[in-house]
Amino acid sequence: MNRYFRELSVAGALVLLLGLLGVVAPQFFELQPLLSRLTAQVPTLVLTIGIAMVMITRQIDISVGSQFGLCAVLAGNLLAGGLSLPLALPLAATAGAAMGALNGCLVAWLGLPSIVVTLATMVTWAEVLRLTQQGRFINLPAGVQWLSLSQAAGQTALLAASLALLAAMAWLLKNRSGGRHLYAVGSDAEAARLSGINPKATTFWVFVFMGALAGVAAVCNLVQSPQVDPKCGTGLELKAIAAAVVGGIAVNGGRGSLWGAFVGLLLLATINPALTFLHVEAYWEKAIQGLVILLAVVADGIRSRRNAS
């Protein structure tokens, strides 16, 4: 119980919010729009999985939004040029992994602080994207949306695939040595090294994996509509980081679970529609999101102080 305090308390908050919606605005739970809303969060979920792993390793990556945008535009242009969809996914993932490898090299092998490295690469990729695409939408060929399936089937498939990815990664992180290495490096890199783990390699591969996930997330986004908006990645890094933080991933590494990050994402992603359904004015949104983040960490702070004393 105590071990999963954060996950459970966030889940509790989510249940409360959903309960309120159930009483005040039961139409929130209509199946089809609910499916659309959930599917729209799939790309953010994929990014959140990666961000959570990066943060567990005691690093951060704020360039994922830019990576996402660049991968989406790259894949979109290739698809519009006639590339087949099954090839777009590995291509986007490879492009993302390459960008992640650059971050990884600079952080792991040169020992540079990840917040600064990824700040620089965030700006770089954003400007490269602006200079090359100039804000133009890309019209995708027919058949890309929903992977040529029906809408409901496509949405279900995307949701199922992302949840499977989440479950697989969560299991790997908890139960396989490769996953445990992330926690070890994140809590104490020196101790990890002495026990035979290579912290540099672990850090490097986490960034590469993060980049690949950014590419996968970009494809998950572009199959949801017949167009690619080159601005689609803007601000996603903060959404993913906020979800991970609210879900109990510690910024100083070594602690937290992917399931927690998942619940954190669900809570944050429910706030925005809840405001619309409860008819709260749009200009309260940012303030409320800030409060939720603060409440989550304050609860944590108070609890850890009480445990300490």
């Binding site: 139409q27 929130f28 729209a40 939408f137 509509s225 908006d229």
Partner: peptide
């Protein structure tokens, strides 16, 4: 952003 417009519209239609 197109995606945010889509999400907001989905919410508006439901609410």
């Amino acid at each position: 952003q197109k995606d945010k417009a889509q999400q907001e519209t989905t919410n508006l239609l439901g609410a």
